[in-house]
Design a protein around this nucleic acid. Structure first.
Lengths: 333, 333
DNA sequence: CTGTTAGCGCCTTCAT
DNA sequence: ATGAAGGCGCTAACAG
């Protein structure tokens, strides 16, 4: 591999001149520049980012840790982050915590050792608050994605979960539903607890009784599925709301297992949803998370932070569209 | 940020000793080791991967360039690669070429400048053969993923596309279909041209006429969709086969636009398919690409290559399961 | 068992 | 307009 020394020798200049033409960091005579450029060409010289980063203590790279690389919503966020990073000349280091705090901690350490300029983090469900305190101490800026932190001392990008759920419930109650089951999942995850809060808002808006609603909370999707199956068999719930794609899978399976049908017997709606779901029956009413745009926005916040380290932290809440489909239509008790 | 010098001073040893306890690269007395370890603790020392990599000329990182980060199949490959890399202590640098040769070239340059130990590449559709020749010259090992190269001079991981399609066509012809349309898409993509070859194999197996089949080739999905719509309106094709998820979207839309219905009027099958598609109607017969495992396998090949630079290149073809569903059932002419 | 030292390739101040 | 030279933080001979 050719180095700056090789280029300098071939061009008959000093390595400092080579560096300066490379970075455009001071004037160099037209003619010398030409010689350097052609020497670069001939030697096939390629800058060594490592040495450069070591010297400048800046890597032009950012890290992204997602909590569930397998979920479509996170895959989209990764896509968005990658695009926005590349547009800014930043390289993306990707890691997946798989909802595990230990793996998350290891990923953070690894990325910080690699001296990333900034970190975008969708925290694992069982991530400890202590982690955030530690991160506060680091000089590497952090942007929280999707999995937000209650006190707004970080830059964060999320969705308007609570309000979106409230709108969804309003839609259901407007159709006459009075008893619904919500599969809330692991409410240690802020986005999920926000959605549950929104559900309660909606129930209150419609002056319905909390006791008539079924709230399914827990970490084990298949257990939730069973509980819902039982509930649908024995009680008169007329609507089911799922709070994420995997929970929607559990919900739909429970509906089938209980011998119910959507939308005939039971209305169904979900957050996040399934891709291309408009092509299939039943069409499912979905609150669509703008995951790709959230990824873009996270990089934006991070870039802003890098250029203004002491500005006030910002929390962005992106709007989620409510896509109405047949799974919540034609309800009649 | 504490450095090895700080640790050494605090522990009252030389930096070389610190380095050796850090890397376990030579024996150090139990007692000194303890002192060093505690000094590391106290200073909050963290290894600087950059300096280390510069010195060792080895970064313990790999690059992955996908051609279409938005497609579910590639998202799964990313997931698999990330997991396998993390399991081996490798950091993943991710880039997306978005099927554009220029972006691909830039991504390659960027990653090589970062001195990745190896590269996993799903080439862009319009990637030039010259690129592969250039890559041959690099000392950085390359593993081709999904988008393979005809001459097997690289390590590669793909699927048994041709044979899988042949099996699928056999299933269709066994049901009595004699006229099918295949949406082959951009056959510059090897996986797609292989699938088309398999289609022709299947047609020949059944002693059907090529002229009775409709082969739709092109880069613009919506144009293919229109052509298929017209064909379905005017000709008696009884089956449609799509060669990727986006092409399946086009195919299903065309079927609807032509006023046909699956499976009543027309059978339908696709490669790659939709996630959780078992939950929806019509259930679609799908050749499922083992994308996650392909990602895992690619890292495996790369790791092997790193430890045995001069071994013969290997091409892995993973088996794709044929999932039969109702979209190809109950056909009667 | 431990220490000294020469770079890895680059940027950047200080001279000229 | 250009060069010389000192590190960035670390590993790996080479010495003791």
């Amino acid at each position: 591999m050719a180095t700056m020394v090789d280029v300098a020798r071939l061009a008959g200049v000093s390595i400092s001149t080579v560096s300066h033409v490379l970075n455009g960091t001071r004037n160099v005579e037209k003619n010398t520049r030409r010689r350097v450029l052609s020497a670069i060409e001939q030697t096939g010289y390629r800058q060594d980012t490592l040495a450069r980063a070591l010297r400048r203590s800046k890597t032009d790279s950012i890290g992204l840790i997602v909590s569930a690389a397998g979920e479509p919503a996170f895959a989209e966020m990764v896509h968005g982050v990658e695009q926005a990073a590349a547009d800014r000349g930043l390289t993306l280091l990707l890691a997946n915590s798989a909802e595990d705090a230990d793996r998350e901690q290891r990923a953070i350490t690894t990325l910080l050792e690699r001296r990333i300029d900034g970190l975008i983090l969708a925290r694992a469900a069982n991530s400890t608050p202590g982690l955030m305190a530690d991160l506060q101490q680091e000089k590497t800026p952090v942007v929280l994605l999707d999995r937000l932190f209650p006190d707004a001392s970080f830059d964060q990008v999320g969705a308007d979960n609570r309000d979106s759920m409230r709108r969804l419930v309003r839609h259901l109650t407007a159709q006459g539903h009075t008893r619904a089951a919500i599969i809330a999942g692991d409410i240690r995850v802020p986005a999920l607890s926000e959605r549950l809060d929104g559900f309660r808002d909606g129930v209150r808006d419609a002056r319905l009784s909390d006791a008539d609603q079924l709230v399914l909370v827990g970490r084990d999707d298949s257990e939730l599925q069973e509980r819902l199956t039982d509930a649908l068999r024995t009680s008169a719930y007329t609507a089911v709301v799922a709070c994420s794609t995997p929970l929607a899978v559990a919900g739909l399976r429970a509906i089938v297992a209980a011998g119910r049908r959507t939308p005939d017997n039971v209305s169904f709606a979900t957050f996040d949803g399934f891709s291309n779901s408009d092509l299939f029956r039943p069409g499912i009413t979905t609150v669509r998370q703008p995951a790709f745009d959230m990824g873009i926005a996270a990089v934006g916040l991070l870039a802003d932070r890098l250029s203004a380290p002491h500005a006030n932290p910002r929390t962005l809440r992106l709007h989620q569209a409510l896509e109405l489909r047949e799974s919540t239509e034609d309800y009649s008790r």
